[in-house]
Computed example of a mutant assay.
Amino acid sequence: MTLERFIQLWTHRYHKYSHIFEARLLGYRARLHFQGVKRKLEKGRKLIAIVRTEHFGDIIAAEPISRYVRSLHPDAHIVWFVKPAFYELVAFNPAVDEVFKEFCVTQRQILMAGNVFDEVIELQFSNNNHCPKCQVFIDNPVAVQRDITIFNYFDYGNLLEVFAQTGSLIPARAKFPADDQPRLYLQESHRAKVDQLQLSGRFVVLHCQSNYKPKDWPSERWEMLVAWLAANYDYQIVEVGMKSSLQVDTKAYHNLCGQLSILETAEVIRRAQFFIGLDSGPSHLANATGTFGMILMGALNNFLNYNPYSGTYGRQENVVLVRQPELPCCDLTFDFVKEKVQEVLDKSSKVSALS
């Protein structure tokens, strides 16, 4: 073994075992914290954990579960487990009493071993709960029993229905029994931030990159769509997301990528006339804010024809799912997407002219 390889090996081991030590320490601290919370609860009040730590589209899709659990346990102290990056999605939810910022799954493993919670509602699939640093998987026994995995979960319904099944809230392959429209809890700070952007007039929001390559549409076709929109419609075009891959030369285009928090992005989408994007987190923001969506979708892995949404997008009342049978999103032609977008925009123009 060379000296360089020896240093790399022990550097990796140092970071791994330091992480594990911190996770375990934080797990014991969290156990003490929730034991204290439980002692302070009035007799008969339950301490309930809801676990959906990522991704942010999944957390939005699962939001109706918080209200459903609250309806089942009106006096309970409900704690939502989430990764720190997605804290704000749950922080203002009135159905949740406390948000736990999870360090990693090892921390949760140590915490749950103390049996401090009266009920744990796991909104996780089998093979869906992993810490790469600890190299630890935590399985959800309900998902294992019902055979709900990352390879077949859309066979069980939309995301909300799947999560409710993995949490043992509803029978296998059942419909969600309560209000299934996801909600966001936007604050004055989010509105004030977007006011500062001075987005004037009518605008369309685009989201052009997901966190999973098979869901994406090629950048050059997005560029063609932006150029076509700018040439044919009187809309400003606002791109949101982590970063942009577009090369665009038109005054109608504004790049807000990387400049906004998740809920600030939601406020931008809420103010838009239309949202055009992919099957990804921001499309769930559009569903939750009530903005009409045009969602570019396609066959995804084992799922040839699926709809991840509940609420109005799930019923296709406020959205057009732009897709063709069994084709992946990347194979949708520019002309096909343009035609679908044109149908929506032209219909909207006619309605506005008549009103």
Rank of each mutant, 00 (worst) to 15 (best):
F6T: 09
W10G: 00
Y14W: 11
K16P: 01
S18A: 13
H19P: 04
E22Y: 13
R24Q: 08
R29D: 06
R31C: 06
K38F: 04
K38R: 10
R39C: 08
K46C: 04
I48M: 03
V51K: 07
F56G: 00
D58Q: 04
D58N: 05
R67H: 07
A76M: 14
A85T: 10
E98Y: 10
T106P: 03
R108N: 09
Q109F: 09
D118P: 06
E119T: 02
H130Y: 14
K133L: 15
C134L: 03
I138C: 12
V142K: 09
V144G: 01
V144P: 01
Q145Y: 06
R146I: 02
D147G: 13
Y153F: 15
F154C: 02
Y156I: 08
G157R: 08
F163H: 07
G167H: 11
R173F: 13
K175L: 02
F176W: 12
P177C: 03
P177M: 03
D179N: 15
L186W: 02
Q196P: 00
Q198I: 07
F203M: 11
L206T: 04
C208S: 14
C208F: 03
S210P: 07
K213D: 09
W217S: 05
W217Q: 07
R221L: 11
N232D: 12
N232P: 10
Y235G: 10
Y235A: 06
I237C: 06
I237P: 02
K243T: 08
S245N: 13
V248F: 12
T250P: 09
A252Y: 01
Y253A: 04
Y253W: 10
N255R: 05
L256P: 00
G258F: 10
Q259S: 09
S261T: 15
V268W: 00
R270I: 14
F275P: 00
S283G: 11
L285V: 12
N301P: 00
F303A: 13
N305Q: 09
Y306Q: 06
P308R: 08
G311T: 07
G314Y: 10
V320S: 11
L321R: 15
R323G: 07
Q324C: 04
C329A: 14
L332S: 01
F334C: 07
E339G: 02
E339F: 02
S349V: 07
V351T: 14
S355A: 11
S355R: 11
